[in-house]
Amino acid sequence: MQRTDLVDLGLVDLGLVYGLLLLVIGLARWNRFGQEKDLLIASVRMLVQLLAVGYVLKIIFSLDRPWAVLLILLVMLLVAIQMTVARVRQRMPGIYRVVGGALFLGCGCTTFLFCQLVIGLTPWYDPRYLIPLAGMIIGNSMTGSSLAAERLAAEISDRREEIETALSLGLSSVKAAQPAVHAAFRAALIPTVNAMAAMGIVFLPGMMTGQILSGTEPLLAVRYQISIMCIITVSVALTSALIVWQGVRSFFTPAHQFREEVD
């Protein structure tokens, strides 16, 4: 059962909420909280970015062509790769290859499985489903990936003595770095695990809220939310695992030595 009598949101309504936001910015300035510049910039960015996305989606929906949908997914993926790499402060050899491969494989496989086996999209590229679902999967996997990569690089740098001691005793580099790998994988999964545990109690997830607002029956929205959360967890786990497995190898030569020594 679906109700489609969605309340229209006109430009005047939009202007009203934006006015409220500007009022908050004004209050922040008046009270010298010092956040008004950041708030203003962020709100303008939001406005411009979302308007742009809205128009792009409109064009893609009306084009209804697989290449256009795939192009958008590719752009999303490239931005996610760039943002993940930018967040890693420590040195990680071959980071673009490691992060790019992990996000491409992890998000690609899970999005495909979900859209084909679970939802059974027809046509397979239906942009109304594929783009938002892939967006959620890629977005969450990006958070997991950057935590995995950042933590792995930090752990390997912090545990250098431990790893070299293990290497000197004849352990392989992967075995010697195992504690770092485990710590990185755990760190990557924490936000997703927390989100799953708190879901429905602490907050109502955005996708479910959106579906309910647009008239979907609540229990159907809940089923969608549960399945998207499961697939997000699978994707985060898969991309993080790929990052730590491939990433740990990138720190060592085939002779199980640390790559390049810099004094």
Binding site: E164, L167, S168, L169, G170
Partner: peptide, 11 residues
């Protein structure tokens, strides 16, 4: 790995 086991290092 064989070298490292046969030629042991104490740091």
């Amino acid at each position: 790995l064989e070298i490292r086991r046969r030629i042991g290092l104490v740091i």
